[in-house]
């Protein structure tokens, strides 16, 4: 039973990262109609940058810098994915983001090497709750995921900038007609999503060392979490992330560690198949 709860705890922590990536994907999709398959790159970038910068400064400062740099990288991806002029179709944008992901892996390999990187967690002491070890890092991840969900929801519902993002997705033509610039809207969404994913990635690195090519599995897991809510709901992406993380850990613990990406892919495909028959089709 202790093993079971231990797996759940670890599952919630990795699930928090899936949730964070999933919510980032939802944000970008809601604002632009683009599925950003390079989203996981920002998690890797966040982790590797924090490691490298952390050699020269405190980890906290390194983490903040890594987040900011990731946001800037996000704006670049936005401009490329949305197209320099005119409107790129969502399909073309998706293919562009896949290309960006491949290119980014090569760049990350050149810049940071292939050694998995890790660094100090927020605390070295684990809490022992009835035999179940809970790393404070897990708690931080879970809190950040919850805060991100709350923050994003409030941002999209209550702030004029967030509402502009929703408006651009709801009726792009009308959004343009009232003066909104669709490319600016895309840039905001990509930048926020990149920063958020970077935070998730840099918080994960202490428990799961980050390598240059980890982005694909992070993206797929995040996408599976996001599809749980039809790519439209922040709240369901959060729940989807947790659920996926827990299920994967249970399979890793009781069946075979090799299966975790297969689980994410299966969950994703089943959800897409199920959703596409209902009214909430992708």
């Amino acid at each position: 039973m202790t093993t079971f709860f231990q797996l759940i705890v670890v599952g919630i922590s990795t699930g928090s990262v899936f949730a964070i990536v999933g919510m980032s994907l939802v944000l970008v999709y809601r604002a632009t109609g683009i599925v950003n398959f390079a989203q996981g790159v920002f998690a890797v970038l966040g982790g590797l940058l924090t490691y490298s910068l952390g050699q020269h400064m405190s980890l906290v400062v390194a983490a903040v810098l890594a987040t900011v740099i990731s946001a800037v990288a996000g704006t670049v991806v936005a401009v490329v994915a949305v197209g320099f002029r005119g409107r790129t179709t969502p399909l073309a944008s998706l293919i562009i983001t896949v290309g960006i992901a491949l290119l980014a892996e090569a760049l990350l390999l050149t810049a940071f090497g292939e050694v998995p990187r890790s660094y100090r967690a927020v605390s070295d002491h684990a809490w022992n709750i009835g035999g179940v070890l809970v790393q404070p890092q897990y708690a931080v991840l879970a809190v950040v995921a919850l805060a991100a969900a709350l923050g994003l929801t409030l941002f999209l519902r209550r702030t004029i900038v967030g509402q502009a993002l929703v408006a651009a997705a709801d009726a792009p033509r009308a959004a343009e007609l009232i003066g909104l610039n669709l490319r600016s809207v895309a840039v905001i969404a990509f930048a926020i999503a990149a920063a958020l994913t970077a935070i998730g990635g840099l918080l994960l690195a202490p428990t799961v060392p980050v390598t240059y090519n980890a982005d694909l599995s992070i993206t797929i897991n995040g996408f599976a979490a996001a599809v749980f809510g039809g790519l439209a709901s922040i709240r369901l992406a959060l729940l989807g992330g947790y659920a996926l993380g827990v299920v994967e850990q249970l399979v890793v613990g009781y069946v075979d560690p090799q299966y975790n990406l297969i689980i994410a892919l299966s969950v994703m495909l089943v959800l897409i198949g199920w959703r596409s028959r209902g009214e909430l089709a992708l």
Binding site: Q163, V166, D170
Partner: peptide
């Protein structure tokens, strides 16, 4: 082409923001 998921008031305010 209203912004369907946003409240009516947000639709109106966006008209001022957009300008």
């Amino acid at each position: 082409h209203v912004f369907a998921t946003l409240p009516v008031e947000a639709n109106l305010l966006l008209g001022a923001y957009g300008r």
